[in-house]
């Protein structure tokens, strides 16, 4: 137990230190770890429990100009955070994203702040897959290396055009193109190696088995266009401490139904609505609800 707690503490500490040095950006995500919002803010260690990921990042402003560049890093646990605790650092993959963008601050528009940028993402992951029609039911470790390139647009919308009393929203839209895989759409199974033993005296069959989680089905990768949209609506009655989120994701390979709508409720830091501390999401993936929980530690 002590060892497990120590492992978790090390994971959090490494993430914290990296984020501290990296001046991470504050973002919120859907349960699968995707986001189209790249907010500039203080440091943030971000943990997405549904995606079993820890992310941290770096945002820098080019001098006093309006050009910004950033880099994000994310690590995913192989079979959820429990696997990190029980199996040591059982990482399923990682992701590095870099972006370059410019902001605009029109004075009289409902769009009070805009940020347009391009981003490049590299993903490395590994899946245990039982191929379709496999006679041996052997789970084959299958690596995935994919890169995507895309663009994103963020806007802060104030229906009162900055004069107060209106509705305030954050909008994010992103479109990417590149290598994707369908591992998330495959059925998850337990593959077990069992050894049977028959004791002659009592005619008792004893079984010793060792199981591991694997995906079963036809694994495929290809270049696809994916898209995401996020709308965060600050609730005035809560002094902007609560924000309601509407999300949409489009990915032809990741899910059987390409479009995934979602809804979330997020809590922001008191006196800093741009710092999201955490929230819950619910998304309709292939017609089934998927709940997500994420927390952020702004500093």
């Amino acid at each position: 137990m002590t060892c497990r707690l120590f492992t978790v503490a090390v994971v959090l500490l490494v993430g914290s230190l990296t984020a501290s040095l990296a001046h991470a950006q504050a973002i919120f995500e859907s349960s699968d770890g995707e986001s189209s919002l790249a907010l500039r803010s203080g440091g943030l260690l971000h943990i997405n429990f549904a995606d079993a990921s820890v992310s941290f990042g770096l945002v820098r402003q080019v001098s006093t100009d309006r050009v910004h560049f950033g880099i994000d890093g994310k690590l995913n646990a192989k079979d959820g955070f429990v696997s990190i605790v029980s199996d040591g650092f059982a990482l399923g993959g990682g992701q590095v994203t870099g972006f370059l963008g410019r902001d605009f601050s029109p004075r009289t528009s409902m769009l009070q702040y805009q940020f347009v940028g391009v981003r490049v993402e590299y993903t490395h992951s590994s899946f245990d897959i039982v191929p379709d029609g496999s006679a041996t039911l052997e789970a084959i470790s299958t690596p995935f290396n994919g890169s995507t390139v895309g663009g994103f647009y963020n806007a802060f919308i104030d229906t009162a055009r900055g004069k107060g009393g209106g509705q305030e929203l954050l909008l994010g839209v992103a479109i990417d193109y590149g290598r994707r895989n369908n591992a998330d759409s495959l059925d998850e199974v337990q593959v077990c190696d069992a050894i049977n033993s028959l004791t002659t005296s009592a005619q008792t069959v004893r079984t010793v088995s060792k199981c591991k989680t694997a995906s079963v089905g036809a694994y495929e990768t290809s270049n696809r266009v994916t898209a995401s949209v996020d709308l965060l609506w600050y609730q005035r009655w809560s002094s902007n401490r609560i924000a309601v989120a509407f999300t949409g994701r489009y990915d032809e390979l990741k899910h059987r139904r390409p479009f995934v709508p979602g809804f979330g409720i997020f809590v922001t830091e008191s006196g800093a609505p741009l710092k999201v501390q955490g929230g819950i999401t619910i998304e309709a993936i292939d017609g089934k609800p998927r709940f997500g929980l994420q927390v952020g530690f702004p500093f």
């Binding site: 601050s105 802060f156 107060g164 305030e168 741009l274």
Partner: peptide, 8 residues
């Protein structure tokens, strides 16, 4: 400055 309202 530009920020959501209720910013300290």
């Amino acid at each position: 400055f530009r920020a959501p309202s209720q910013t300290d």
